[in-house]
């Protein structure tokens, strides 16, 4: 176990010793700062509550977090192949499945750290610029007005789960195709076009759309007791999590199968 932690330590080193990683953090910290300065200069007399600010800033950051996590997931395996380091990595006394697991966990930890950073920065920056309110009247959601802490924590949890689902897809592609460009391209396509594809599928008027991945990436639509991402097919949070879980299991299984056996040329 202690030995496996050393693999994880290696993967973390390879993430955090890269300049790109810190550029990502700079975005997470910089965007809320720039946003609050912009809001103050535009509407100095009618500022939002710190919670409304946090909600708006977090919506922007959530897409970035998903993209950044996808980039790291895509790089996890494909990067070792493109650099050629995979040959030195795999000739160690470890099963390929353990090495892949360390990469997968490092990718999850990276997404979790970005999410925690975004939560903290938006909360702290919002409070610093707009003061702290215990019950914000300007929130769009009822739960958000009554219990902003609970609302934002749940909101972040749902966004993190969606990000993990897409990142797992990117991880699978990375392990299967060993090409970072293709992986990043397809995964970001899913992220951006997911809503559009959901709309197209719902035009078909077939309940099969309930079982596709795309709608369930919008878990936050269940907050405030909503009917979920597809109003014409009311679903429950449990159902969405189950669909995500099945997709996740398939992605992980394919990643492990693809990485475990094939020749490294």
């Amino acid at each position: 176990m202690a030995d496996f932690l050393r693999l994880l330590q290696n993967e973390n080193m390879k993430i955090y010793r890269r300049v790109g990683t810190w550029v990502m953090y700079a975005f997470i910290i910089g965007i809320p700062l720039v946003m609050s300065l912009a809001i103050i200069s535009v509407t100095p007399e009618d500022p939002p509550s710190n919670w409304l600010f946090m909600f708006i800033a977090s919506n922007i950051l959530a897409s970035l977090i998903a993209i950044f996590t996808v980039v790291k997931a895509a790089d996890a395996v494909a990067g070792e192949f493109s650099q050629g380091t995979i040959k030195l990595l795999l000739i160690r006394p470890w099963r390929r499945s353990s090495i892949l697991l360390s990469k997968f966990l490092a990718m999850l930890l990276f997404g979790l750290a970005l999410t925690a950073a975004a939560f903290t920065v938006t909360l702290v920056v919002g409070t610093a610029f707009f003061g702290y309110t215990a019950s914000p009247e300007d929130m769009f959601s009822e739960m958000g007005r009554k219990n902003p802490w609970g609302y934002m924590l749940l909101w972040y949890l749902y966004q993190f789960i969606s990000a993990v689902a897409v990142a797992s897809f990117a991880f699978m592609m990375s392990a299967a195709f060993r090409s970072g460009g293709l992986t990043i391209g397809l995964s970001i396509f899913i992220l951006l076009a997911g809503g559009l594809i959901t709309n197209l599928l719902s035009l078909l008027d077939k309940p099969i759309v309930k079982y596709t991945l795309f709608p369930h990436l919008q878990l936050t639509s269940y907050l405030d007791g909503g009917p979920g991402p597809l109003p014409q097919y009311p679903m429950t949070l449990g159902f969405s999590l189950a669909v995500l879980g099945v997709h996740f299991a398939v992605f992980v299984a394919v990643a492990w199968l693809a990485f475990g056996r094939r020749d490294v040329a």
Binding site: L7, Q9, K14, L88, L89
Partner: peptide
């Protein structure tokens, strides 16, 4: 082919961690 963005030493630490 080693990790180009790591130092030589960090590369060695990396591979040292993988063996007992």
């Amino acid at each position: 082919e080693l990790y180009r963005y790591l130092t030589g030493y960090q590369n060695l630490v990396h591979f040292a961690r993988m063996a007992p």
